[in-house]
Design a protein around this nucleic acid. Structure first.
Lengths: 126, 126
DNA sequence: TCTAATTTTGCAACTCAATTGCATTAACAA
DNA sequence: TTGTTAATGCAATTGAGTTGCAAAATTAGA
């Protein structure tokens, strides 16, 4: 069960994802809202939003957890198979609107993929 | 600078990677050698071996750091672009001898990739 | 609108992987 | 064998993420 009640803390977090379609690390999110709510609350809201399929999570290059808004996902179906790109200079993460073909692997059942491309983003590669 | 001196602790760790070509999490490695050396030593040896290109590291599905022996890598060139597969049931990780085609991304420079496939391995999918 | 049920939050304490500083020990070149 | 310095052990620390519990906020129903 995900979101049940609409609270102030919830809309604060939701707004961050809605005003700019950009991935955010949990650490950064906590920093952004630190005057408005406790870090535990941030973790719990993110959990609930992910259960509802509103956002999806993935691991950044340093092992930190990141979240981004889902496009066309729901609680029962999560199409978070798209790859992410993280810049080594500015650390920003982008969701890439690409399908990456994963060849099937003998005797293995692949449920999900976690693909992170690491390099220099548009701004930092100039 | 990677490995300079050949110590007992070093060969203990190296032997683990050599006797079985299997990825290991740092946590598991520390457990394996806990009677022979300090965990700090394990972390430092892994660092040095990675700098030399003897092993490569990647993040497992739970954010833990894993290491595996490199095939055809050196200190200056690291061909760790191969994907890894982690089983949701037994947690084991395999290095997959596959090339995954990454389409080039406009105005981005991709230096490396971090691809983790998650599912059930040969043993656990039966 | 008021009340009761229950979800959500804040706070403090905790877990656990990973790192750091420093004194001691071990490797090895000369 | 000795001196240099890399490597190690140990204790303390960092930082992300989690947990338990009491207090506060939301919401459904009267």
């Amino acid at each position: 069960m995900g979101i049940v009640r609409k609270t102030k803390a919830l809309s604060t977090v939701l707004q961050i994802f809605e005003e700019k379609n950009e991935a955010k690390s949990v650490v950064h999110l906590i920093e952004l809202v630190k005057d408005k709510m406790n870090k535990t609350t941030v973790y719990r809201i993110l959990d609930r939003l992910e259960q509802d399929g509103t956002i999806h999570s993935f691991n950044g290059k340093d092992g930190l957890k990141w979240y981004a808004k889902c496009e066309g996902c729901s609680a029962n179906h999560h199409s978070d198979k798209h790859p992410h790109f993280q810049c080594t200079k500015c650390d920003k993460v982008e969701c890439l609107p690409l399908e990456i073909k994963i060849p099937s692997i003998k005797n293995h059942k692949v449920d999900s993929t976690d693909i992170l491309l690491i390099g220099q983003c548009e701004v930092c590669s100039m």
